[in-house]
Amino acid sequence: MQRSHYENISVGVNADIYDIEMIKKSQKSMIIAIYKQSEPFVVYLRKQNNNPNLYIEFEKFINILNG
């Protein structure tokens, strides 16, 4: 399975490669909207692959953006 663009950004934020405050100011609403649209697909993939950790970084990133 290929990692999504936003999963990669999430990993970069966790590794202090990307500035979270800049992302919040410039893309927060868009990223949250994309997650809301893709969440049913993520849940489906997790069940199909029996892997609750798929896209977990993206999910954690959304929690950071909302926090």
Rank of each mutant, 00 (worst) to 15 (best):
Q2E: 15
Q2Y: 14
Q2N: 14
Q2A: 10
Q2I: 12
Q2C: 06
R3F: 12
R3T: 15
S4Y: 11
S4F: 09
Y6W: 14
Y6E: 10
I9V: 13
I9D: 03
I9E: 06
V11H: 04
V11P: 00
Y18D: 05
Y18C: 03
D19N: 13
I20Y: 02
E21I: 10
E21V: 10
E21S: 10
K24R: 12
K25Y: 07
Q27D: 13
K28C: 04
S29K: 13
S29V: 11
I31A: 01
I31E: 02
I31L: 02
I34H: 01
I34S: 02
I34P: 01
I34A: 03
Y35S: 02
Q37I: 09
S38L: 12
E39T: 08
E39P: 00
P40A: 07
F41M: 09
F41V: 11
F41T: 11
Y44G: 09
Y44M: 10
L45C: 12
R46S: 05
K47C: 10
K47N: 12
K47P: 05
N49P: 04
N49I: 06
N51C: 08
P52G: 15
N53G: 12
N53P: 05
N53A: 13
L54Q: 09
I56P: 01
E57M: 06
F58Y: 10
E59L: 05
I62P: 00
N63V: 09
N63P: 02
I64V: 11
I64P: 00
